[in-house]
Design a protein around this nucleic acid. Structure first.
Length: 599
RNA sequence: GCGCCCGUAGCUCAGCUGGAUAGAGCAGCGGCCUUCUAAGCCGCGGGUCGGGGGUUCGAGUCCCUCCGGGCGCGCCA
């Protein structure tokens, strides 16, 4: 990587100067950035500014000394110029051939260009979606799924050893509620009149599941006591709903390596063993929880929960000492009725995950933000570290149609399913649009815009750019221009500022990918793709104006430009691949589309 | 009341973990076709980075405080 080469040169130079006693050895980390203004060179290095305090010398003076050390170390002649600028930046301009060779490497690496080893093969478990198996996925789950999948993909590209994991909450009260809802519909299918209570799942899929169970069991459980059918109905319903969820995920091209069942954690005894180890470590105690905080003026909130009859708030609970690890209060791991809490199983699950991986990533809805401190507390308490866990919070999605908000209400059952959206706008647009915003900012998803095949649709804009590059290659083939191999002499003709910009973009793509991976921010790739293709469109149109585009009268220039286009096409395809979006070689033109419709 | 997230151009948003003169798209106005797609491009106008303090060589970015919006604050999951 070009960037790595510069870092290496500066490290050497700083070490050399330190060995000679010219400045302190234990220097704080310097950074390297790509300046916006090309006049500032290829990279700006702040080493002198960072070192200035420890060295007791003004930054610009120090910069001069560092520049000399860099020159002495750069025996390959990779650095063309070094300038001291502003408060003490060292602006580095590399020899043009350094960039051109990176271009050659990009094409040689092909579909692998952008893959790095910064992850050093460390094991990461990325847990995402983990939607409760109580119904099909809605749009909000879709964003979680796409961002999670993007994070997962980025980490893979950056050389981490990734496991994609879905935590199935198939144990608690919610899946029991599902089972009861199914049983009610099951009674209905046998001709009974039922009313669905407020705490039930009203969706049509519940009827479908009930129908399956009727076909399987007939009227065997029609009047049976709940104890006889609850677990059975629950397990069947969960299984069927997970089938729906898998279909929803498949529609946006998402798959998992592992489905971890909460129920299995109990049945295998993992939770019990975990609880015992908490006791041995003195991390839990029997006590009472302070009364819940209430809003000013309002009467104290009464927890409603699923407390058994006759169990009161004054009863003792088993509490986890999370407040000693930065949480607000201690959190219950066992309820007054002696059963364990969701939190208990979840930290057992995280403990299990931590034993299988070095780094954990949880992709959670923003409404679970308040849950994060206790999770971090748990990891610290258990002898791991909160730093082993990275939580990506996903803000809500507001669905709009031509700017008009689409009203959604869970209670009224008017929640728009992910599947409806994907069927309407397609997997590519769905995926890309979920990545056009930082995940911790709310997102307006406009269905009309996502469907539109115009430039204001970002997916379309990027895909069109790729198709245009493919068209250029086709044209060259038709014109009998051979597919060019890399030719350094020819490449040196790529002197236009736009060409230089594109070369640098192609060369630095691996840095973009690894940077996004380390920040867990797939949206960066989506933005980078838009910027890069915009740079190409601009270049292309300018060439067109001057009458000379890619294929021109000069065979050497033509070869060099075709090579550049080939590299660019590859890098766009790779960026889209990171995001799981298709890179088509041709777009259906509006004319063709109209013609087809007319026909 | 407490905690977390957000506040950047008229609108929707980026801003590379603290860098040089804050960017893009849309909307508005004005231009550019001999199709290797005008499904594109170029130009113009547009800003107290919510307000105020602080940290340092340097702050949209970090800290404090206030204002405004969202989410959370169960022995639910």
């Amino acid at each position: 990587m070009v960037r790595d080469r510069v870092v290496e040169i500066f490290r050497k130079a700083l070490a050399k100067g330190a060995a000679e006693g010219r400045w302190p050895a234990a220097a704080p980390a310097f950074s390297l950035e790509s300046p916006r203004d090309p006049k500032h060179g290829d990279f700006a290095v702040n080493a002198a500014m960072v070192l200035s305090k420890a060295a007791g010398r003004p930054p610009r003076e120090l910069a001069q000394a560092i520049v000399e050390a860099v020159r002495a170390v750069d025996d390959a002649g990779d650095v063309a110029t070094l300038e001291i600028a502003g408060p003490g930046f060292i602006n580095v301009r590399l020899a043009p051939d350094v960039w051109l060779r990176a271009l050659e490497r990009a094409v040689a690496a092909g579909a692998g260009w952008g893959r790095t080893k910064v992850g050093e093969g460390k094991k990461v478990i990325v847990e995402y979606v983990s939607a409760n198996p109580t119904g099909p996925m809605h749009v909000g789950h879709g964003r979680n799924a796409v961002v999670g999948d993007g994070v997962q993909s980025l980490l893979r590209w950056a050389g981490f050893d990734v496991v994609r994991e879905y935590y199935v909450n198939d144990y608690g009260a919610q899946v029991q509620t599902l089972a009861r809802s199914v049983h009610l519909r099951y009674q209905e299918l046998h001709g009974r009149t039922v009313t669905m209570p407020p705490k039930s799942y009203p969706g049509e899929y519940v009827r479908d599941i009930a129908a399956r169970l009727r076909d399987e069991f007939g009227d065997r459980f029609l009047d049976a006591p709940e104890a006889e059918w609850l677990a059975l109905f629950r397990d069947r319903a969960v299984q069927l709903v997970l089938g729906l969820i898998r279909e929803d995920l498949a529609a946006i091209r998402i798959d998992f390596d592992r489905w971890s069942s909460e129920k299995a954690l109990y049945e295998s005894g993992t939770v019990d063993r975990f609880l015992r180890s908490l006791e041995e470590k003195g991390l839990v105690y029997v006590g009472k929880l302070p009364p819940p905080k209430s809003k000013k003026g309002a009467p104290p909130a009464q927890p409603q929960g699923d407390l058994e009859e006759g169990v009161s708030l004054s009863d003792d609970l088993l509490l986890f000492r999370s407040s000693q690890y930065g949480d607000e209060v201690d959190r219950p791991v066992k309820k007054a009725d002696g059963t364990t809490t969701y939190f208990c199983a979840d930290i057992a699950y995280h403990w299990d995950k931590r034993s299988r991986a070095d780094i954990l990533v949880d992709v959670l809805g923003a409404d679970h933000g308040g849950y994060v401190p206790r999770l971090e507390a748990a990891l610290d308490a258990l002898g791991a570290s909160r730093d082993d866990l990275h939580v990506v919070l996903i803000q809500m999605v507001n669905l709009t149609r031509g700017g008009e908000a689409v009203k959604m209400s869970k209670r009224a059952g008017t929640v728009v399913s992910l599947r409806e959206v994907v069927d309407e706008v397609g997997a590519d647009a769905t995926r890309f649009i979920f990545l056009t915003r930082r995940s911790d900012a709310q997102l307006d998803f406009d269905v009309e815009l996502a469907k539109r095949q115009t430039l204001d649709n970002p997916v379309f804009y990027v895909q069109y750019g790729h198709a245009r590059l493919a068209a250029i290659a086709r044209k060259a083939a038709e014109a009998g221009v051979p597919v060019p191999a890399f030719d350094l002499d020819a490449a040196r003709t790529l002197e236009a500022p736009e060409e230089q910009d594109l070369i640098r973009r192609i060369a630095s793509f691996p840095d973009v990918v690894s940077g996004a991976a380390l920040a867990y921010e797939p949206h960066r790739i989506a933005f980078w793709l838009q910027e890069t293709i915009a740079a190409f469109h601009s270049y292309y149109t300018q060439g067109k104006k001057s009458g000379e585009r890619v294929i021109g009268p000069d065979p050497r220039k033509t070869a060099a430009r075709l090579f550049l286009c080939r590299a660019l096409k590859q890098v766009l395809a790779n960026g889209l691949a990171v995001l799981g979006v298709a890179a088509p070689d041709r777009m259906e033109s509006p004319e063709t589309r109209d013609a087809v419709e007319d026909a």
